[in-house]
Simulated scan of single mutants.
Amino acid sequence: MLTEDGKHLYVSYDEYHNLIEKLAIKIYQSDWQFDTILCLARGGMRPGDILSRIFDKPLAIMSTSSYRADSGTLQGNLDIARFITTPKGEIAGRVLLVDDLADSGHTLNMVIHQLRNNYKPITELRSAVIWTKGVSNFTPDYFVDLLPTNPWIHQPFESYDSMRPEQLRDKWTI
């Protein structure tokens, strides 16, 4: 649900999963055949996992991080892992790169640059996200929602960003 001021978008678990399913349909309707899904951890892990199951394709993982401060609300320096975890040995062929959103576009631009320069066995690379913000300088090949007001997206699992083990213990202690 988008707030009246357009600055916040609150997403429930059901809405989140529905959006991933809509993303899957867009990819499917493009008739593009791919060999592997490469998700960007952390934001792309949930969509990547679901898409991997729907398309019955192996899931590779590349870790990136830029949102760390204030429970993940302030962008910092972008860190990109040097290695990709994949069950197939080396990532190759046609790869679908998956993340949750194209915010500024910086992460996706940098990752694609790194993949094209350092992973020559990748023959074709396309990108898929749930949301693309209007301020993004990157346009993914596949996305579900364009957000021209650039709201902060409150995803349903964000409560875990500030939750600690002792809080869970207290919650579940009877």
Rank of each mutant, 00 (worst) to 15 (best):
L2D: 12
F143R: 01
S12T: 15
L168H: 05
I27K: 04
T64P: 04
V111C: 09
I27S: 02
D145T: 13
A24Q: 05
V11T: 14
A24V: 04
E124Y: 12
L23E: 11
I84T: 05
Y119T: 09
K88L: 14
G6A: 06
A41P: 02
L125H: 08
R126L: 09
H17T: 13
T86E: 08
A92F: 10
L2C: 11
D14V: 12
D70G: 08
P58A: 02
H154K: 13
Y142P: 06
R46H: 09
M110H: 03
W172V: 02
A92K: 14
G89P: 02
S127R: 03
Q155I: 06
P47F: 03
I80F: 00
I25V: 15
L97R: 03
A41Y: 06
V144P: 09
F55T: 05
D14W: 03
L146I: 13
D161K: 14
G72R: 05
P151M: 10
D100V: 08
S136M: 00
L146F: 15
P58H: 03
L38D: 02
R46K: 14
H8K: 13
S30R: 03
P140E: 01
L74Q: 15
S63N: 12
S71H: 14
E21P: 00
G134V: 06
F143W: 06
S71G: 14
V111Q: 02
A81G: 15
E158K: 07
L51N: 07
E158P: 00
T64W: 05
T86G: 09
I84P: 12
W172R: 01
S127A: 15
L59Q: 02
T173P: 02
G76Y: 00
M45R: 08
F157V: 05
I122W: 06
A102M: 05
F138N: 03
I61V: 15
V98I: 09
A128G: 10
F143Q: 08
S71V: 08
A102Y: 06
P87K: 09
A102P: 05
L40Q: 00
G48P: 11
H17L: 15
D141R: 07
A69I: 04
F55H: 01
L125P: 08
L168R: 04
P156K: 11
V95Y: 07
D31V: 03
D31C: 04
P156Y: 15
S104T: 15
S12E: 10
D161Q: 12
Y160R: 11
D141A: 10
I61G: 11
I37G: 07
G89K: 05
Y28T: 11
V95I: 13
I50M: 12
D56H: 09
G6C: 10
G44Y: 04
Q29K: 14
I50D: 08
K26P: 08
Y67G: 05
C39A: 14
D56T: 07
R116T: 13
Q33L: 12
